[in-house]
């Protein structure tokens, strides 16, 4: 159980902490992982998100999140219109996802000059979420702490390098998880840090051999 502000709070746009606030948060985290506003987004809703999503504004909240809105943003109900104004194309469809949590969304994001990104996340209630898949690799993080997400080639030595680079930058690792693509070849490191990872340290990591992409999520 979290803090007293999980009991009294969050401040959010209704009607549902799991189906609205959580959905907005999924969209917001997806956008942050992608690194920019997508030009095209395909959103797939599973389980209860698909069944009662319309009435709960799950669809509007997800799009709002992709537009960079937080769960308490009063513009969430107008997100479809705003997406149109800002030229973000989107589709939203129900989709049966095997063995997924009932409140699951899958988002595929596209923009020119950036690799397509696919994330899967679910809403656990109280406005909190878990990201469970990133580009086909199983992961598990919430974005509630400072989180560094590193996609790398799955070969020996990479973890040690990342740990050393962070320690050089005076960054303390709180937790570290490593996930491997079942098909082999790629891996994702999810590193929760006590400090904010500065841009230079990110660049430093990104320039290392075998590291494909580095993203930093500020605790929120």
């Amino acid at each position: 159980m979290g803090s007293i502000f999980d009991i009294l709070g969050p401040v959010m746009v209704g009607p549902s902490s799991s189906h609205t606030a959580g959905a907005a948060r999924i969209g917001m985290i997806a956008r942050q992982l992608f690194g920019r506003q997508p030009e095209k987004a395909a959103v797939y809703l599973h389980g209860s998100f698909a069944a009662t999503g319309k009435g709960h504004g799950t669809d509007k909240a997800l799009i709002a999140g992709l537009l960079g809105m937080k769960p308490d943003d009063m513009r969430i109900p107008d997100s479809f219109k705003i997406a149109k104004e800002e030229g973000m194309e989107f589709i939203i469809e129900p989709r049966e996802i095997k063995e997924a949590h009932p409140n699951t969304a899958q988002i595929i994001m596209d923009a020119e000059g950036v690799n397509t990104m696919k994330i899967q996340a679910y809403s656990i209630g109280g406005g909190r979420i878990r990201v469970c898949k990133l580009d086909g690799i199983d992961v598990n993080f919430s974005g509630e702490s400072n989180t560094l997400i590193i996609r790398n080639v799955d070969e020996p030595g990479r973890i040690k390098e990342v740990a050393a680079a962070l320690s050089d930058a005076q960054i303390n690792i709180a937790t570290m998880q490593v996930f491997r693509d079942k098909r082999g070849g790629y891996a994702v490191m999810v590193v929760e840090t006590d400090q904010i990872v500065p841009r230079e340290a990110m660049g430093d990591l990104e320039s290392k051999k075998g590291i494909i992409r580095v993203k930093f999520l500020l605790a929120n």
Partner: peptide
């Protein structure tokens, strides 16, 4: 009603019960 109409509320303890407090 605010909650049902997608306005801003404080979940206390949840969105459904946000009117009591």
């Amino acid at each position: 009603c605010n909650n049902a109409c997608m306005k801003r509320i404080v979940a206390a303890p949840t969105a459904g019960a946000c009117g009591v407090m």
